[in-house]
Design a protein around this nucleic acid. Structure first.
Length: 201
DNA sequence: GTCGGGATCCTCT
DNA sequence: GAGGATCCCGACA
């Protein structure tokens, strides 16, 4: 078992901000999962912010349920859910306070554990597609519902903040939330400009 | 208990 | 570009 490194984000305050602010800082930061079959991590290149409960695209919009309970808890925890019965999507729960907001991790540039990630994804995808799209991020990092509710400051998954100059960021509407009325058009999806690992641009 | 939909991905045409 | 895979979750009776 590999313990959370000293330079990982362990401050609750870092997560205890609106999802849009955390989403900006997650771009260029690194996400790492030390799983039983190996450690895989990479640079976050694409995210979506969900500002529940008023955000009609967010799972928290229809109130607290057993499925989304983690979103209503403290910031800095992992919210993992299954979509279409197939794909595990990974979210970082944010604040402010216990406001049920979260950031969906949509794409990574894998830079540690490439061989492990390739083994999990099979022979087909090229390296730029290994963790491109939220379902693929889940598969490459071996994330499933058993990690729902994991504390990002103490668990086998952690965030390493970026150093140096911030990346150039672009933003646009979120994917697959057409049902959310005016919220569907809001530019709450953000990505690093010209990064080939981004799922759609 | 039953039914319908979903923050997706991949293959085939 | 279209459609299938596949199953949890929530709404409703």
């Amino acid at each position: 078992m590999i313990s959370t490194p000293a330079h990982a984000v362990t401050s609750r305050a870092w997560f205890d901000r609106p999802s849009t602010a955390v989403a900006r800082d997650l771009l260029g930061a690194r996400l790492v999962h030390a799983a039983a079959d190996g450690l895989v991590g990479g640079r976050i290149v694409e995210v979506e912010a969900y500002a529940g409960p008023e955000d009609l695209a967010a799972h928290s919009a229809r109130g607290r349920t057993a499925r989304n309970a983690v979103m209503f808890g403290l910031p800095g925890y992992l919210y993992v859910y299954l979509i279409y019965g197939l794909h595990h999507c990974m979210n970082v729960v944010t604040g402010p306070g216990e406001k049920p907001e979260a950031v969906l991790i949509r794409a990574l540039e894998i830079d540690v554990g490439l061989e492990v990630a390739r083994g999990r994804r099979g022979p087909r995808p090229s390296d730029v597609r290994l963790a491109s799209g939220p379902g693929n991020v889940g598969r490459a990092l071996a994330v499933d519902r058993t990690l729902n509710g994991t504390d990002l400051s103490a668990g086998p998954i952690w965030i390493e903040p970026r150093g140096g100059t911030p990346p150039t960021i672009s933003s646009g509407p979120r994917i697959g939330v057409d049902y959310a009325g005016p919220w569907a058009a809001r530019p709450m999806r953000s990505w690093i400009v010209d990064d080939p690992h981004v799922s759609r641009s």
